[in-house]
Design a protein around this nucleic acid. Structure first.
Lengths: 203, 203
DNA sequence: CGGCCGCCTTAACCGGGGTTAAGTTCGACA
DNA sequence: TGTCGAACTTAACCCCGGTTAAGGCGGCCG
């Protein structure tokens, strides 16, 4: 991808705020990146796919979810522009994906191959540190989620969610929000009735 | 700490299974390590303490927990021999600890200063990679926990917990188990009555 | 020895959320 | 335009877990 491309510049800025990255490493990274588009409802990744791609959302919105043995579906995360989207746990464990990653709206992604990134990181402390920093931030996010399950009621988790993703509320079907906060669509509907049919930003 | 010490040898082996670490890095790490003991009920860390120590449990058992504004207590984790014990999220965010870390039995710890480790890692890709690997494993564990909250009932989470920490069940009071799986002691008691007063290994 | 306290259990009551089912709205599409 | 289906809501019923309170048990200490 061209370093002069606006997407590339924006991404660079964002990465710099996580950890400093020398220009050489940045160029090397970009040279392995390709862009990809997914239409609304399309899949970036399905169970059984080899977990080898690290994506960054450039534009649009995706959700990460999985389906358990009983066919019950759970949403793990939503990811918008600037966020990393990948079956991270499976990449770490070098297993095939167990998750779906699906575009909720037309989405553009920057795609990196994990082993190429790993290869570059073998030779750069800075890149290695950046990668660590990124996992650390993911870790903190998961711990925040753990906190919400341990200490908040479903209603509070819903309100928290509305605060977290104000810009995406209009694009996410409520049953997926319900799944994300760990309740059924029916229960979410009741909560929204109690709370007074909370914000669902006009478009 | 002496590299010839049995604890040091055991730890080395364990770290090697996570990611390779050259002898020079290992020696440097060890030279900054000190050992510390905590009696049963004693604290390794309390809210407000600067989050600067990375501990590894050599012997014993600790729990990580926090108390929210309403005084409600939640157990985030238990850590036994060979496991890392630290207010990780706070270290990552460079904030003071918000958690308690408490010994459930007499415990010995290996203590490292975060900034010393960071300093070493600035000069070693191998150490940097090892650190990343460790966070990655923490991340996977948190995602597993997220899965349990999303898809398992309290009863299933209890049985899962019994499978996870069979060796520590005897040392952990039930109300702490309840807190860990996100229910009240009363509810756990009922579950145990249903399930048939599950294993609580004789000592 | 007796009393206290922490831990665990049991019981009774209540409320939130799961389940099932029906009804509404709305957009896609023939 | 009519039909179909997905998404959302509402209602009825039930169960799990929270809450409160009481009682048992064992260890610690005066």
């Amino acid at each position: 991808m061209d370093p002069a491309h606006p997407d590339a510049r924006a991404l660079r800025t964002q990465l710099e705020s996580v950890a400093p990255l020398p220009p050489a490493d940045w160029k090397a990274l970009l040279s392995h990146a390709r862009e990809s588009s997914v239409e609304r409802g399309g899949y970036v990744c399905k169970p059984g796919d080899p977990a080898e791609a690290l994506c960054v959302v450039l534009e649009g919105l995706v959700r990460h979810y999985y389906v358990d043995a009983r066919g019950r579906e759970s949403v793990k995360a939503f990811r918008g522009p600037g966020e990393v989207s990948a079956p991270y746990a499976e990449i770490i464990q070098r297993k095939p994906s167990r998750s779906f990653i699906q575009a909720l709206v037309p989405t553009r992604l920057l795609v990196l191959q994990v082993d190429q990134v790993e290869g570059l990181a073998e030779r750069s402390v800075a890149l290695q540190r950046l990668l660590r920093r990124l996992v650390e931030l993911h870790f903190v996010a998961k711990e925040q989620r753990e906190y919400e399950f341990l200490q908040l009621s479903a209603e509070e988790r819903y309100q928290q969610f509305c605060r977290e993703r104000p810009g995406h509320l209009a694009d996410i079907p409520l049953h997926q929000v319900a799944s994300y906060i760990g309740i059924t669509p029916v229960a979410l509907s009741r909560i929204r009735a109690r709370v007074g049919r909370a914000p669902r930003r006009a478009r």
